[in-house]
Design a protein around this nucleic acid. Sequence first.
DNA 1: AATCTCAACAACCGCAATCTG
DNA 2: ACAGATTGCGGTTGTTGAGAT
Length: 296
Amino acid sequence: MNHVNKYGPRDWSSIRSKGLLCRTGKSCRLRWVNKLRPNLKNGCKFSLEEERIVIELQEQFGNKWARISTYLPGRTDNDVKNFWSSRKKRLARMLQAKHTSPSSPLPAKQSNSGDTLRYLPLTWEIANEASSSTQVDEQPSCVDQSREMLLPPGPIDPCLIHYNPNLLPLEMMAPEKSMNVDCPAADFPIQVPFAPTMPVLPVPLSPESQELVARLDNGCLTHGFEQEDGTGSVDPEMMFSQELPQQNSDVGGENNLAAPDSFFDDFPADMFDHIESLPSPSNWRPIPRDKMRHTE
DNA sequence: AATCTCAACAACCGCAATCTG
DNA sequence: ACAGATTGCGGTTGTTGAGAT
């Protein structure tokens, strides 16, 4: 932290050469990016909204985690990557389970979703099993163990997506805006690319369930997209090319306001004065052994 | 209470791009 | 133009903690 305060988040190799730490500059940088950097949402689970963003952007960008993370304030590429691989593992397990016992009923937890579950386009999952691994990667599970249900990335009901075309990736935002991220994610002071409106239902349902019901009501899962007036269908790819930010394809391009690299460079010199500094050794207190974890 | 399973997280590794002398 | 150093990114693996059995 002191090094970053003094030199900014670069010149990592000098940390080692100056004997400050025995770690490589590379791992110092990683530690900074993933843990020490200010305004990270450490310990916060991905909100439904963040999950949706990841799913959408992963489909568009592929495994460009760094790029995707620029749309998720407070999340690092590592966060996104870990989140995605967790989902992938879950999906793999579930597909396998389905394969080995196709007639076996769903676990009680999942069948709690009750009638809605049987409307899901299960052929979607099965079809993807035969496709390439990347294809499978891009198509997360409809059914989630820990949460009741998560839907495939597409098609998404356009009525539920309100994309703000003025949105810029986090790195492009003015520092004072991007530095103001609070937990939980639902309280974003910053707009995220997708902000769905949840339908109001008489029965208390989880947000996930509400979303699912909304989609089912619109028949979007099985019939693709419909125009707002209900006539005809909309090509999902078409829709995404319109819905997703044009500037996405320009990230790193010449139209950028700022490239990620220059992000910190543009900060005022005293910016890091506000970053919590390490306590002096005299203030260190012993950490109970069972609480000890990667403290550095 | 002990053990097992699994999701989440942290860190390492290798590669590619970029920078610098 | 070139080589070495540095930085950034994505894949992978190891660790931990919580919940289930």
